[in-house]
């Protein structure tokens, strides 16, 4: 990667979460018949939070304020390994996707610990749910990445996502992985129908309730990290379903990639406006949908490769 590309990647990494959240919120506002906040509202919120002085509970320990930093660190570092602009990433090494998944795991562990640190029953509930769904979604993510690696014959994140829509026998692989990754996106970044990012009320107590006691810069770090993870996963889905192959025309492909990410933001907003949140008991089944989708993709890939096609 050239220096320019790295700079572009970092700028995109820092800026696109704000755009993604803005587009999702605007979509939801339009569905609800409101005018909605400005597209950059998330940025204004973050800067406002950064100026504030935090409030800490008597019960908390340093883990409480270290956790947001760890979450943001892992989001930033993993962002450098994900092909955010579609075709390459500044950090790219064989099996980097394993490292990315475990980095997200590290961030999640610290956020959960911070939630338990406050000693509140609400936050404990959220922590328990986050740990549960985080664990259940891992197999789908790995199965998906393994399938993509097998289908493309590559082993770095930036190259495995280009499975392509080109031939008809690849469509099962692409569709299965895209569905799985979209579900993973909804689980990992706490969107409807898994979680509701708007409230921390009992029914939706997952991510928002875990960060109930955080304030000021700590809260800003947590929200920014969460939005960044959403963007990274959207970039993965977009790269998988991008109709223009990168080998032929990188410029057009990057444009379509970014457009696809925009469409995905719209899709997340639409799902959030039109679909009710699932019952917590039904969530494991919803996650199984992702696993099954990618399992079908894996079998299709194995059959195609095994038959020498």
């Amino acid at each position: 990667m050239t220096l320019l590309a790295v700079v572009l990647h970092v700028v995109a990494l820092l800026a696109s979460p704000i755009g993604m959240v803005g587009v999702i919120n605007r979509t939801k506002a339009i569905w609800a018949g409101r005018k909605g906040p400005p597209l950059l509202q998330f940025l204004f919120d973050l800067t406002r939070l950064l100026r504030k002085a935090p409030v800490y509970s008597h019960v908390t320990t340093p883990i409480f304020w270290i956790a947001p930093l760890v979450a943001l660190t892992t989001a930033l570092v993993s962002g450098l390994a994900v092909p955010l602009l579609g075709y390459a990433a500044p950090i790219s090494f064989p099996f980097d996707f394993v490292a990315v998944a475990y980095l997200w795991g590290l961030g999640r562990v610290f956020v959960i610990l911070a939630a338990l640190d406050a000693g509140s029953s609400f936050e404990g509930l959220g922590a328990s749910r986050e740990a549960t769904f985080g664990a259940l979604v891992e197999p789908a993510l790995f199965l998906c990445m393994g399938t993509l690696a097998a289908a493309t014959g590559h082993d770095t994140f930036a190259s495995i996502v280009h499975v392509g829509l080109g031939s008809s026998d690849r469509i099962a692989t692409t569709a299965g992985c895209a569905i799985a990754l979209f579900v993973v996106l909804q689980v990992e970044s706490s969107r409807v129908p898994v979680d509701d990012p708007q409230t921390h009320l009992e029914l939706t107590m997952i991510h928002e309730v875990m960060i109930l006691d955080h304030s000021g810069p700590d809260l800003a770090a947590l929200q920014y990290a969460s939005a960044m993870k959403l963007t990274l996963l959207a970039a993965l889905v977009a790269a998988v379903i991008n109709p223009v192959p990168f080998q032929t025309s990188p410029a057009i492909a990057t444009v379509t990639h970014l457009a696809t990410m925009l469409v995905l933001a719209l899709a997340v907003g639409c799902v959030e406006s039109l679909v009710a949140r699932l019952k917590l008991k039904a969530l494991p089944q919803y996650i199984v949908v992702a696993t099954v989708a990618t399992f079908i993709a894996l079998l299709a890939t194995a059959w195609r490769l095994g038959s020498g096609g």
């Binding site: 002085a53 935090p54 409030v55 800490y56 008597h58 019960v59 908390t60 000693g119 109930l212 006691d213």
Partner: peptide
Amino acid sequence: YTKHVTWGC
């Protein structure tokens, strides 16, 4: 920063 009790909703 300020110290306070854990927020109990």
